[in-house]
Every structure is written in C-alpha cells, then in structure tokens.
Amino acid sequence: MLIREFTEADWAQVWPIVSEVVRAEETFPYDPAMTAEQAYGMWVERPPGRTVVAVEGDRVLGTAKMGTNRPGPGSHVATASFMVAAEARGRGVGTALCRDALDWARGRGYAGMQFNAVVETNHAAVELYRRHGFEIVGTVPGAFAHPARGRVGLHVMYCDF
C-alpha cells in the first residue's frame, strides 16, 4: 500500500468512499445528503493543507485530509480526518493514513494535532488514535445522533508533539 498526494483523477474513487461513510451516519457529522460537489469542496484541502489517498495499484482504499485546526492564535495545532473503504477496513489503511498525517504535521512544525469530533462509539478510530498518542481531552455528551444508538458523545482528542 502506498500513501500519495490526491490528484483530481482520484475523485472518481474517493467520492464513493466519502459518500458511503457519510451516508452511514455512524462516524462523521456531515450532511448525508451532500452532493459530490459539496463533498469535494469539504474534503479536498487547499495548500497549505493536504489531501492524500492510500492506494494498492490503481485502487483507492482510503483517503485523508489534514491542515491547520484553527487560524490565527490556534494555527500551531493541526487536524486531520480519515475515511477507509468498507472492503479495506481492518487491513491497516487507517493506521497508515494516521501515521502519514502525524508525520506531515510534525514535519511542518505543528505543536500537536487535535481531532474535534470523534464519535465515541467509533471504537476502532478511538483505539487507533490512542495507539498513536492521542488522549481524550473532553467529550460533548449527546452531540452526535447515531442512527442505531441514539445520541452519543463526540470526543475531542489531542496528541501533543
């Protein structure tokens, strides 16, 4: 598996991953009715941010976006988001994307990385982030409407570099 910069040609494979994840309404607080055009504008980061894909041959297995969490006085902290195709889950794609994002942020001199809204029932993601040095610094109770579990919390997670 290779992690590389996103290209325009990748969108044809990235959009189905984004659409599948968002429409499941289990892990991302994005509008499940968003169009491909809206999703592109939300997912593809402009420099100095970055969007990448995890590929095996010519097949996109997952994608990540990363950049500055907040402008101005918060610009020393990075953020990132990850999505993996259903058929590629459990194969280390998320781990590889997370490592890549952390390396990118450290290499650009960020002081740390913050995730603003990790759904507390997304146990695979929470454990992945913990393995990479993130801590839950707070949880907003009931902030995410899960389709099967009702209102669940959103964690704020942070990794200090």
Rank of each mutant, 00 (worst) to 15 (best):
G138A: 11
L128W: 04
G150S: 04
G133K: 00
E127R: 13
N122P: 03
N122Y: 04
R151Y: 09
A124R: 08
P141H: 09
R151S: 07
E135R: 13
R130K: 13
G150T: 03
R130D: 10
F115H: 11
F134G: 04
P141A: 11
E127L: 11
E127C: 07
E135D: 13
V118I: 09
R131D: 09
R151Q: 08
R131M: 05
R131N: 10
T121F: 01
A145I: 08
V118F: 02
F144I: 03
A148T: 15
L154M: 06
G153L: 05
E120W: 05
A125E: 02
E127G: 10
G150D: 07
E120Q: 12
V140K: 13
F144P: 00
N122A: 06
V152E: 02
P147E: 07
I136G: 03
N116A: 12
A124S: 11
Y129W: 12
R151K: 12
Y129L: 10
E127I: 05
A143M: 08
L154Q: 02
L128R: 03
V119D: 01
R130Y: 07
F134H: 06
R149D: 13
L154P: 00
F115L: 14
G150C: 03
T121W: 03
V126F: 11
V140R: 12
A145P: 08
A145V: 10
H123K: 14
H146I: 00
H123S: 15
A143D: 06
V140Y: 12
Q114M: 14
V119C: 07
F144V: 01
I136Y: 04
T121D: 00
T121N: 04
A148N: 12
A117D: 11
A148R: 15
R151P: 01
P147N: 08
G142C: 08
F144K: 00
L128Y: 04
A125Y: 01
G133T: 00
R130Q: 14
G150Y: 05
Q114S: 12
G142K: 05
